[in-house]
Design a protein around this nucleic acid. Structure first.
Lengths: 201, 201
DNA sequence: GTCTATAGCCAGATAGAC
DNA sequence: GTCTATCTGGCTATAGAC
């Protein structure tokens, strides 16, 4: 399918676009990173925009299917919350530049984003909302709009990465301490969020 | 201090830089937005970078003091959480482009950010952490690292704005529904977060 | 202080040899 | 397919008239 040069280009483009964004990225820097000539970028991808599109599509395909699949598993809300938090944070640890990249480019180029994400939007998130409502009807969970809870859950997983520089300043964390904070967060956030929805007896 | 032209420039620059980011912004667009000549931008601010710095400084000064001041008020943790959520969401409603702008430029230019934010970092956030620990010692609150809770609180307030395009797609919200979602969120998130830290009897 | 015109540079894209 | 050299347009910044 794709030859070695094309792969090297995509890898380099991922690196540079995710770090600098579309506007800040330079074709020369991508070429240097890939250790090839700048003309090759245009030979394989014609324009900066097409190369960017390939990177954006791949970034979306990396992260969304993994997230979405959890919502449909047949486990309790509590287990789902814990599994979601652990999985989501692990994915971002493996791709720390992704959240900033995706959320920035999605705001900057919403049409492009909508186009590439459409394949990955399933009704799985709806299933989570329905499951929550059923459990709440039994009296086990507080009566909150599940959408409000879901957004809090996602935001709490992602925010530490988006806000990393600020958090390091405010909490006076060095890199090692920040890393420990994230590692501890998987379980701490699970406990917090499960407690958040549990009804007081 | 500042004359009318300088103010018009700053307002226009805020608009464009916050929407497009440093790299995506064009001096011509700022001039058009301010309805003045492009040369005037350089007359008043010399370079694009200096104009950007003025905007970034002002953005930081708009948002951080208001946030920080809540942490030191002498009210209960519950009241503090509720007040924090309401105040924070109201500030962002009034400045919806600010979170994306700040979090993106802070990642892109951490040194610049550190420089301008240093004036606004107080020990107030520490005070919140201490208050949490005292209350937890009494047995009223779950034993979580207060930093973990605090980051969840902030992330849950900010994330809906950073992730607006994605949320609209997944939840199938139109603009009006999104606005209602945010309005309802002030109270829903307060309740959720207070319940999150309350110990089950 | 405000404008027009333009200098000077830099980045994306292409031509053409090999 | 891969390279060097170059074109072209757009952007920041400045010169200079008023």
């Amino acid at each position: 399918m794709e030859n070695a040069t094309e792969l090297k280009i995509i890898e380099a483009a991922k690196e540079v676009f995710q770090k600098k964004g579309y506007d800040g990225a330079r074709m020369q820097e991508i070429a240097d990173e890939a250790k090839i000539n700048k003309a090759m970028l245009h030979y394989y991808f014609r324009t900066k925009e097409r190369l960017f599109d390939a990177v954006l599509q791949q970034a979306i395909a990396t992260i969304f299917p993994k997230i979405m699949s959890i919502a449909q598993e047949e486990i309790s809300i509590e287990d789902k919350i814990r599994k979601f938090v652990h999985t989501y944070i692990d994915i971002i640890i493996a791709n720390p530049a992704l959240p900033n990249f995706i959320f920035n480019e999605m705001t900057q180029r919403p049409d492009k984003f909508r186009k590439y994400i459409s394949h990955h939007i399933s009704s799985n998130s709806k299933m989570f909302m329905e499951q929550y409502k059923r459990e709440a009807a039994k009296g086990n969970l507080i009566e909150i709009e599940p959408e409000q809870f879901f957004i809090s859950l996602v935001g709490s997983c992602i925010f530490p990465f988006i806000g990393k520089p600020l958090i390091k300043i405010i909490m006076k964390f060095d890199d090692k301490e920040f890393q420990n904070f994230i590692e501890a967060r998987k379980e701490a956030l699970s406990v917090l969020m499960i407690n958040a929805v549990k009804k007081k007896k």
